[in-house]
Design a protein around this nucleic acid. Structure first.
Lengths: 245, 245
DNA sequence: TCAATGCGTATGTCCGGACAATCGAACTAC
DNA sequence: GTAGTTCGATTGTCCGGACATACGCATTGA
């Protein structure tokens, strides 16, 4: 019942990556059942005509994803639990689209303003210097779901209102050649103010789910600071996380 | 200004791990300043008397942690932004202790009950079968901060009330030989019921931050299902996450 | 002046081998 | 029968080398 694995040495795709993708697909399709052993690395390498380090690299990437578990003296097993996705740095837009919700966006504000103390601190710019400010309403099935307020340092991205309504902010940033690296997030809750309630179609004092995020590129520059509020009846943060060991 | 790195070959600690720890410490202490190049791998390996794969393994582990960035043809640089911690699967108890808050725990309930449909589904046991139920109140500075309700399958851990008040649930599970692997979480918000408000010292209808979590061990078994409510004025989820690339 | 080219450098990928550490099971001794 | 021991199997660590690939910079050419 052994899998028919194969690699294409003429492909520019790295061999370990080809192998890891095939293994991941096999797990996804149930050809490798949870709990089953993967066969030892030496034999697997010999069967594929690869070296052991290459096979190990492929396996390791799946272990990092939480799909496999290695046990010394035993072997490598497929993890039982279904791993979904490990809380990526994804935009709400991508989240909704992946869920098949076809999100709609309404740009409320798209302008340049002097940075407040809070925004200046988050973005690492001088207080009062000009920054982009974007306020958006995210709708699903015609109902407001979240209010998104973002600030960006100047000169990074061309913020076209039309594009902002057609796609997510992160896609625009990536398209502008920005390499997103990490983000600091804070998730909390609070009661809605009258203004917030109005925007989201809730009543004043209703509980809101809040998220603050500062995103950095790979040079360590802050490239975005967002303050978001969600209607908890319509949205919650769902994710899977792995134990770092 | 080169760092004085060294490895102890007689130590049972893997060489790559010794190196990665020293590099991490150097970054932490500012001896390696953000943006600075790390020096090429070949030379570094030669200087330490290690092979290049070993040095690469050390560097890679720090890249995975978000501390370093590699650029082909350029070198390896220290990331500017201060990386805190990447949302580990840590207990609230550990979180608070790390923040120097000396958390207190009050065990409200520690008993065995028949599993409700929700609990049975989460833990993968038969509905109505016996499961442990633990209800705790977590306090900081004498003030209630969170209400924690957990269900565990039988026979896994010896749930001693005294130990539950002295430490966190995860520590007990780890001490019982359980290898935590992953967890599915959901973070949301809602208005407090009268009972919840009473427990946490809030008023009815006040916004609460909620978290539901099912934890799995490395065999894929569900080992814990928790339903937690937090006072948003006292607690929020803060974490840093990396872009998977 | 500006764009295209070439080159050095550093990381990315891959190989084949060696020994150590650990787990589980079969085996042995009491 | 039970407990301790040995042993095979498998992953963990480490080595030294080779070639590919991409980036930045200097040189060259229009």
């Amino acid at each position: 019942m052994s899998l028919d694995l194969s690699v294409d040495r003429s492909s520019p795709v790295p061999l370990y990556f080809q192998l890891s993708q095939q293994l991941e697909a096999a797990i996804e399709h149930g050809e490798l059942t949870p709990g089953s052993l993967l066969g030892n690395e030496i034999e697997l390498a010999g069967r594929l005509g690869l070296s052991r380090p290459t096979v190990r690299q492929a396996i390791q990437s799946l272990v990092d994803k939480g799909l496999l578990v290695r046990r010394r003296g035993v072997g490598t097993q497929v993890v039982h639990s279904k791993v979904k996705r490990p809380l990526e740095l994804s935009s709400l837009y991508d989240d909704l689209e992946a869920a098949g919700q076809r999100p709609a966006t309404k740009v409320l504000v798209n302008t340049v303003v002097p940075a407040t103390a809070e925004v200046a601190a988050a973005l690492g710019v001088a207080e009062g210097s000009e920054v982009h400010r974007v306020e958006r309403l995210r709708l699903a099935h015609g109902e407001p779901m979240a209010y998104l307020c973002n600030h960006l340092p100047p000169g990074l991205v061309d913020l076209d209102t039309g594009q902002l309504e057609a796609t997510g902010l992160y896609r625009l940033m990536r398209a502008a050649g920005i390499t997103l690296h990490s983000a600091r997030q804070s998730i909390g809750a609070r009661a809605a103010t009258a203004e917030e309630a109005e925007r989201l179609g809730e009543h004043e004092g209703a509980p809101l789910l809040t998220m603050e995020r500062t995103t950095f590129d790979d040079t360590g520059r802050a490239v975005e600071f967002g303050t978001h509020t969600y209607r908890p009846s319509r949205y919650s943060f769902e994710f899977q996380l792995l134990v770092r060991s």
